[in-house]
């Protein structure tokens, strides 16, 4: 494998040099599709399906009531806020009132959550770390398999390795 793949590397690299963009673009596109589907599902669950949720007290509420833990419970300080108890104020239709509250909640959580995660995320420079382990390891393989390979050659191998490492999760679907 070693000698042959070393001699064959140019042919391996050539068809894949055009791929980095397509691979990245495709993975971003796939993520966008996934993201949109997820948001639609969340909006559906909170905006429509939540109407059919059980209105019984939840585990803690029930235990607290039965055992008397809630004897000194206080009203929520924001209990007259416009969305208190997942009902939208001044909207009389219960389906609409709860659904609207759910949709607003999904939107607000999505916005705040994404904001936090966007601030916290790795920045572009360290973001190279994400793909680093895979090309690194393949660089080792490339070095071992072709100690005589010239510098531009091995960098081409690196690139082709990076190309392949990106789409492979999709392939394993």
């Amino acid at each position: 494998m070693t000698a042959r793949s070393a001699t064959q590397r140019p042919t391996t690299a050539r068809p894949t040099t055009a791929r980095p963009m397509t691979a990245v673009r495709r993975s971003l596109h796939d993520n966008r599709v996934f993201w949109i589907a997820g948001v639609i599902l969340a909006l559906f669950l909170a905006g429509f399906f939540s109407y059919y949720a059980s209105s019984r007290p939840d585990g803690l509420e029930k235990v607290a009531k039965d055992q008397g833990i809630d004897r000194k419970a206080e009203d929520h300080r924001l209990s007259d806020s416009p969305l208190a108890e997942y009902q939208t104020k001044n909207v009389d239709n219960p389906r609409l009132s709860g659904g609207l509250a759910g949709v607003i909640g999904v939107g607000a959580t999505l916005a705040v959550g994404t904001g936090v995660f966007w601030v916290v995320r790795r920045r572009p420079a360290p973001a190279l770390d994400r793909s680093a382990p895979a090309p690194d390891r393949s660089a080792h393989i490339a070095d071992k398999s072709a100690p005589d390979s010239s510098a531009p050659d091995s960098s081409a191998a690196d690139r082709s390795a990076a190309d392949k490492s990106d789409p492979s999760p999709d392939r394993s679907r």
Partner: peptide
Amino acid sequence: LDERTAPLAGLVAAFIFAVQMLNF
């Protein structure tokens, strides 16, 4: 998190909010 997964983490938060409304 990186720029690829940060929006997905936001989605997970929103999804958990939505499913928390669904008392069974």
